[in-house]
Design a protein around this nucleic acid. Structure first.
Lengths: 337, 337
DNA sequence: CTGAAAGCGCTAACAG
DNA sequence: CTGTTAGCGCTTTCAG
C-alpha cells in the first residue's frame, strides 16, 4: 500500500505478485495474458477496490475520452434534449460529456473553451451564446475537433448540425397569411445567434414573397428572455396599427408574450393569432394550445455526437447536417375576421 | 518546439531562455521570481499561445479542481437551477463543474460515480436517481467529499442540502382542507426518491392530523413522468368516490395530470382543485394559474457548492442545510361546493 | 532567485 | 507471455 489511501497500479501489482505492466495489460488490451495472471490481477483489483486513474492514463495516452459541450442556456429544456442525444452516441463509445453552461454570456463561452482545452478534452461541441469574431479567433487555434450545433461562426469551417429554421418559419408565415393575416409581428432573440438570425431572415423573405407589406415596426428583435417578450407585446400593442398575429421565436419568450397579452386583456385567438417556435409543455397545455414550429432536439444531439465520433475516427472532411422543422397547427391561430 | 503541435512548458522555457521550473513559478506561485524572468516568460507564453496542461498538473498535484455533479434528470428545469447555483459558488473558487445525467436510472448513477472517481474529481455532488443500498455501498468507498442535494442515503453520513418538503406539503394539505376538501388525492414519484418520500409522509401525517379520513385509493405513488400523471388521473376518476382536490408532486407529472383532466372534461377549479409541487411556466401561465408549493433551487445549488468548498477547505464535520418551501396560492384551488 | 532532478500513475516499447 | 524502463507535462524539493 502507498502513502495516499487510494490504491495505485503498483499496489495491485504487488498484491498480485506480478509486474505493473501485466496489470495494465489485463485492464486494457487483455491481449496475451495468461489465464492465471489475469485471475490474480482481477482478484487483487477486486480486493483493493482499485480504480484506474484516468488522469494519469490520459497524460500518457494523450487522450482523455472527454468531450466538452458548451451550451448557451442549460435551463432551456431544448438544450437538455440536445445534450441527452449527444451523451447517447458518445457514451456508447466510452466518451464522457462535460457540460459548460455559458448562460447567454459570450464572455463565458471563451472561459469555457479555455477550460476545456486546458483539461485536454478530445473534442468540443458548441451551442455557444455568441457567434462573434472573438469566438472565431479563439476557435482558429483549437487543434481538436469542433462541432457546432445550431450555430454558425464566420470564418470557421468546422462540422455543424443545423436546424432548418427557414422551412419552419416559412411554413409559419404561410399559415398565418393563408388565414388572412397581413399584420404579422415577429418577436425573437438577438441576431448574433443563428436561430434568431435565420428565423428573421426567413420571416422577411416570406412576407415579401407573399406580397405582404413588411412593417419594420412589427419586428421585435432583442433577446430570448421572457422579459423581452413581455415588453415587446407592450410596444406592439401601443402601435397605431397593432398586429393581428404574432410569431414568437423562443420558448422563454413565449411566457413573457402570454403574460403581456393577458395583461392587456387580449384573447388568443380571438384578438391575436399566435405561433411559437419550439414546443414546450406550456405551448402544448396552454388554453388554447399554441401552434408551434417544432424540431427534434434529441436527434440533433445524437447527430452531433456521431459527427464528433466520425472526426475522432479520422474522417476529416467537415460535414453539415440539416435537421427538419415542422409546423404543428393547434388552436392559437385562426382565420382573421 | 516539440513533436506535437501544442506547446509545452519546455517550449516556453526554451524560448524564454530559462528553466522550466521558472515558468512554472511565474504561472503559479508568482513568488520569488525576478521581474526580468517574469517578463520573458510571460512574453514567451504569449507568443506561443501556451495553455498549461491541467491533466499533467492534476496528476502531479493530485487535484483536478473539478467537481462532479450527478443529476437524475437534466431535462427538468429545477436541476438546471441547482446546477447554476452550484457553478456560481464553485467557479468563483476556480473549480469547474462536470455534469453527469443519470436520467432516472440508478444504474447510471453508479456508472457516473465511477466515471468521476476515475477522473479524479475533487468532490461529488449528488442528486441521484436512486437512494438505494448499492449507492450507499459505492459511496462508502469514496474518499472525496460528497454533498447530497435533496437526497438521503441510508448509512451515509455526508453533508446534505435538503428541501423542507414537510412544510410545503403540510401547507398544501391545510390549504385544501381549509377550503373544505376532504377527498384529496396525491400523485407523486417513487418512494426511493426523497422528494416523493417526504411529501407523501407529510401528506399522510397532515391528513390525519386534521382528522380527515385517509383513503389509500387516493394515493398514487409511482413515477415522476408525465405519463404516470395521466394514468393516475384515469384511475382516480374511475373510483366510486373520486377526489375533489389533487396534489401533484412534480413538474412533469403536472403536464400529464392536466392532460388527463382535460380529456375527461374536468374543469379546474370547478370540478377539481389542484395544487402542484414546484413552480414552472406551465403552472404559472395555465388558465387558471396553478397553486404551487415552490422553493428556490438556485439557492440550494449555491449552498451545495459552498458546503463542498467548506469540506474541501478542511472543515470536516458533515452539515445538513434545510431550505424553505412555501405555498403560492393561485386560481386552481378554491372552496368546495 | 533559479536550474536540475525526481517523481505523480499509467502505457508502450523492448527485451527477455 | 511478462518484467523493466522510459517518459507524458507539470510541480516541487534541493542545491546552488
Amino acid at each position: 500500500v502507498n502513502k495516499s489511501d487510494r490504491p495505485t497500479i503498483k499496489d495491485v501489482a504487488a498484491l498480485a505478485g506480478v509486474g505493473i505492466a501485466s496489470v495494465s495489460r489485463v485492464l486494457n488490451d487483455a491481449a496475451d495474458v495468461s489465464a492465471s495472471t489475469r485471475e490474480r490481477v482481477l482478484a487483487a483489483v477486486e480486493e483493493l477496490g482499485y480504480e484506474p486513474d484516468l488522469v494519469a492514463s490520459g497524460l500518457r495516452r494523450g487522450t482523455t475520452r472527454t468531450i466538452g459541450f458548451i451550451v448557451s442556456d442549460i435551463a432551456n429544456p431544448l438544450f437538455a434534449d440536445i445534450i441527452k442525444g449527444a451523451e447517447e452516441s458518445l457514451e456508447a463509445r466510452d466518451y464522457v460529456v462535460l457540460i459548460f453552461n455559458s448562460r447567454g454570456n459570450p464572455e463565458r463561452d471563451l472561459t469555457g473553451l479555455r477550460l476545456f482545452l486546458r483539461r485536454r478534452v478530445d473534442g468540443v461541441i458548441l451551442s455557444v451564446s455568441g457567434e462573434d469574431a472573438r469566438m472565431a479567433e479563439a476557435l482558429r487555434g483549437v487543434r481538436v475537433p469542433v462541432v457546432l450545433v445550431d450555430r454558425e461562426i464566420d470564418g470557421i469551417e468546422s462540422s455543424a448540425v443545423l436546424s432548418d429554421h427557414e422551412v419552419g418559419m416559412t411554413a409559419a408565415v404561410d399559415h398565418l397569411i393563408d388565414l388572412g393575416h397581413e399584420r404579422i409581428a415577429l418577436i425573437t432573440g438577438p441576431l448574433n445567434l443563428r436561430p434568431a438570425r435565420v428565423r428573421s431572415a426567413a420571416f422577411r423573405a416570406q412576407i415579401e414573397a407573399r406580397q405582404v407589406v413588411l412593417d419594420e415596426n412589427l419586428l421585435s428583435v432583442g433577446s430570448f428572455s421572457s422579459g423581452f417578450g413581455e415588453s415587446s407585446v407592450d410596444r406592439l400593442y401601443s402601435l397605431a396599427y397593432p398586429p393581428t398575429a404574432v410569431i414568437v421565436g423562443g420558448v422563454q419568450l413565449l411566457s413573457g408574450v402570454l403574460r403581456g397579452l393577458a395583461k392587456r386583456g387580449l384573447q388568443i385567438p380571438r384578438d391575436v393569432s399566435l405561433v411559437s417556435c419550439d414546443d414546450s409543455p406550456l405551448a402544448e397545455f396552454y388554453s388554447p394550445p399554441i401552434t408551434v414550429v417544432t424540431r427534434d432536439m434529441t436527434e440533433m444531439g445524437t447527430l452531433a455526437g456521431e459527427v464528433m465520433l466520425a472526426i475522432l475516427n479520422g474522417e476529416s472532411a467537415p460535414v453539415t447536417h440539416r435537421c427538419p422543422t415542422r409546423l404543428i397547427v393547434r388552436a392559437s391561430s385562426r382565420a382573421l375576421g
